[in-house]
């Protein structure tokens, strides 16, 4: 099975995989060989790819969609970060600025919710990876 991760700028990851765990809007979702076709919304969090030889790689992805059909898992996301690019300090700063956003209208509230969720997802990933 193939795992392809695409951002609006370029194709970031295109590799063979035996198992993919993606952060959906409400929790993690695992996809193995022969998974039922699915289209899903992605939240912010850790993407884990296990290669056929057992090598594991992790990334942080933010928002977008996942489509799994046949032999291909394609993930469309806004941003892909490697663990080196994620720090807890930055995530917490993002969270603080997201929480300070206004929420006077429904649109602004939705925007704030999204920013807070993204920052929380990044902070969770950073903590898990033992980042400071």
């Amino acid at each position: 099975m193939k795992c392809i991760v695409v951002t609006p700028e370029k194709t970031e990851i295109d590799q063979d995989a035996s198992f993919v765990v993606a952060p959906l809007y409400d929790g993690e979702y695992g996809i193995g060989q022969g998974h039922t076709p699915v289209v899903a919304r992605i939240g912010a969090g850790e993407l884990r790819i296990t290669a056929p030889d057992g090598a594991k790689s992790v990334f942080f992805i933010e928002g977008g969609f996942l489509e799994s059909s046949g032999d291909v898992v394609s993930i469309l996301t806004n941003r892909v970060l490697t663990p080196d690019e994620v720090t807890l300090e930055k995530a917490e700063a993002d969270l603080a600025s997201a929480q300070a956003l206004e929420q006077t209208t429904a649109e602004l509230f939705a925007q704030k919710e999204k920013a807070v969720r993204t920052a929380r997802g990044m902070a969770a990933a950073a903590r898990k990876w033992g980042k400071k």
């Binding site: 699915v38 289209v39 899903a40 977008g64 969609f65 059909s69 046949g70 469309l76």
Partner: peptide, 27 residues
């Protein structure tokens, strides 16, 4: 092969559409 595939939508087709339209505009 793809044409016959029946997709499962998480959480729902409407919710995905709601997200996909602004994304399409940005792109």
């Amino acid at each position: 092969a793809k044409k016959g595939a029946e997709y499962e939508f998480l959480p729902s087709p409407e919710s995905i559409l709601e997200e996909i339209v602004p994304t399409a505009f940005r792109v």
